[in-house]
Design a protein around this nucleic acid. Structure first.
Lengths: 207, 207
DNA sequence: AATTTGAGTATACAAGTGTTTACTGAAAAG
DNA sequence: CTTTTCAGTAAACACTTGTATACTCAAATT
């Protein structure tokens, strides 16, 4: 036993194949436009075999969304952490570039994350909403920490984070329909917008 | 002729019925999840009769999106125009309230606008993108004009507009899954965020 | 008054959908 | 070596889907 084709190993392999297939297909159409049969046949198994792994296509989708959310958050957090002290503008540009690179290289993942924001089932929307909140939380906590060291304190870290996440989403959606040559320009615009928000978040007069 | 049941009048009536039905149904599921047969039967006509009005369901969707974009832009522009000189905070709050009211009263329209941002066909996405650009343009031009009268000039009106539109979209999506009692809190948050952006857009040091 | 027009109906078609059922055959357990 | 387990197959089910065809019958035209 425990060679390359043990029972549970094979099952796990098929499971991943299903997930990856669904991901690949959902970059062509939206995930909610997929069918169970389509995913199964593209993965090379019968429709009935699908049920050995997921109770429904929606269940697969929820797993998928977990994965994309997790990987994206980790990536960004790591980017923010790894940087040594540097001018703020450069730090923003670095994060923005990392983000846009991620989108370009994981088009389908990102498309899934954004695409089901409204379209999907309520369960789906709720899961995505939770993902977004985690996203904001992490960004907010990183912002307070970083600003504590390098700059004046932010008035409203949570709101600042939310505005920045808004920018991430809208620009991200814009990036999907863009050619590679226009990425630099988009990155610069995005960085400028984020800097603008930072400066607004630092001004003293509140309300 | 030309009584209440002339030929073209009847046709127009059915056309509107189809549009309205599709709109109503797309507040339950996303528009791209609708079927031609479903819309037709809910409108009380046969599938084949649908083709007397639209070549496809997608065509109906494009008409629908035109309508929602138009009405939303008009509403917001009107709100910004009608107000007399008032403190900026109050002006922002007024716009935000109007916006959230619109969303609450035209849930399905708004949901359509947001829902097909990624999910729909390329044609759909392109149409929506164009809608968004018009949106930003109008806001940007209004911003410059208003700030010329009441405040310091904005560094980057177009970018300011884009950030604000980002907020509109993300908060709008949030509003859809909210109970009425939480609208006030959301409105206040949204207004604060927008003010934050304004202040950032006014600071002198650029780049 | 006779004719044309066209929105809407009835019906049929091929294709695709989710799910269920009984099965096979090899890995795992005894 | 025998038995159990279970991922995957094959086939059928009762749908729904988009589209095409031939039709009706009232309004509009002549």
């Amino acid at each position: 036993m425990s060679n390359g084709t043990s029972r549970q190993e094979q099952k796990e392999r098929t499971r991943r194949l299903l997930i990856d297939t669904a991901l690949r297909l959902s970059s062509e159409k939206s995930f909610s436009a997929l069918s169970l049969r389509e995913v199964a046949s593209q993965a090379g198994i019968t429709p009935a075999a699908f049920y050995r792994h997921f109770a429904s296509l929606e269940d697969l989708g929820l797993v998928l969304m977990d994965e994309v959310g997790l990987s994206l958050r980790q990536l960004l957090r790591q980017t923010r952490r790894e940087r040594s002290p540097m001018p703020r503008w450069d730090a923003i540009v670095l994060s923005v570039d990392t983000y846009l690179d991620y989108i370009r290289n994981n088009r389908s993942l990102f498309q899934l994350l954004l695409g089901e924001r409204m379209g999907g089932t309520p369960k789906f929307r709720k899961a995505l909403h939770a993902e977004l909140e985690r996203f904001k939380d992490e960004l907010a906590s990183d912002l307070t920490e970083l600003q504590k060291q390098y700059g004046p304190p932010l008035k409203e870290p949570r709101m600042t984070a939310e505005v920045i996440v808004s920018i991430f989403f809208v620009v991200g959606a814009e990036a999907l329909d863009l050619e590679k040559k226009d990425y630099a320009k988009l990155a610069h615009k995005m960085a400028t917008e984020i800097l603008m928000v930072f400066e607004g978040a630092e001004t003293k007069k509140s309300r």
